[in-house]
């Protein structure tokens, strides 16, 4: 792999992690959606660059799917859901932004340490790619844990899934059908979650997950 190809893919993967950090400190829902769309665009670029470098046509399809669904359809749909529910207020963080960012830094360090140890025989690109992908996954999970609003939990989940696609694109030989099925499963998950969001807000007049906790069955 030439130096340029390596640098560009490195740059794009790093940008994905950076955008994940940006997601962590967005306190408003619309801004969160925009940053999520930005992450999807960076992901699509990264996958497309991999397609160009690896000379793999099917990765272009993956990039197109990522762009269409994650950068356009899902953000627009979520935008409309938020407008219809009238919840474009602040996002409450359970943990403050500062500790969250510090935790995120620790997670990135952890994933790099783990990946460098585990795959030290693979070539440099795959190694770094996997480390970044694991960081994005962990940051997405962190986001799901520290947020209380159901919409931002959904976005955390979607960004977690972006990390999976990044890992899949970096690994050579991942069949197209796997990526397409992953993309569609995300779409299905999004649809189900959207329906649930409406049901939850109809029933409880809020999408704060705390409201659900009161309705658990026989608590000891």
């Amino acid at each position: 792999m030439t130096g340029l190809a390596f640098d560009v893919s490195h740059l794009l993967a790093g940008a994905l992690v950076l955008v994940s950090f940006m997601l962590l400190y967005q306190t408003r829902l619309f801004a969160l959606l925009n940053v999520f769309a930005l992450q999807a665009v960076v992901l699509a670029l990264s996958v497309a660059w991999q397609a160009y470098v690896q000379d793999a046509i099917h990765l272009y399809v993956t990039a197109a799917i990522a762009f269409a669904f994650k950068a356009v359809i899902i953000p627009v749909a979520l935008h409309r859901i938020i407008s219809r529910l009238g919840i474009h207020r602040d996002v409450e963080n359970v943990v403050g932004i500062g500790p969250t960012m510090l935790a995120g830094l620790a997670l990135v360090a952890l994933s790099i340490v783990v990946m460098l140890r585990v795959v030290n025989e693979a070539d440099a690109l795959a190694r770094e790619d996997l480390a970044f992908a694991l960081s994005v996954v962990l940051l997405g999970m962190l986001m799901m844990v520290v947020r209380r609003n159901a919409v931002s939990m959904v976005i955390g989940f979607m960004s977690l899934e972006n990390g999976l696609i990044l890992a899949a694109a970096g690994a050579k030989g991942m069949p197209l059908v796997v990526e397409i099925s992953v993309a569609f499963s995300v779409l299905v998950a999004f649809t189900v979650i959207g329906v649930f969001l409406f049901r939850i807000s109809e029933r409880f007049e809020t999408v704060d997950a705390r409201a659900l906790d009161q309705f658990q069955g026989d608590r000891l």
Partner: peptide, 25 residues
């Protein structure tokens, strides 16, 4: 463990994952 909130469940999963990664590291 049967009666945690959604966020606590997510936190348990997350903590388990991070703990396993730490062991691996």
């Amino acid at each position: 463990l049967q009666f945690l909130t959604i966020r606590q469940y997510l936190s348990v999963v997350f903590a388990a994952l991070v703990a396993l990664l730490l062991v691996l590291a």
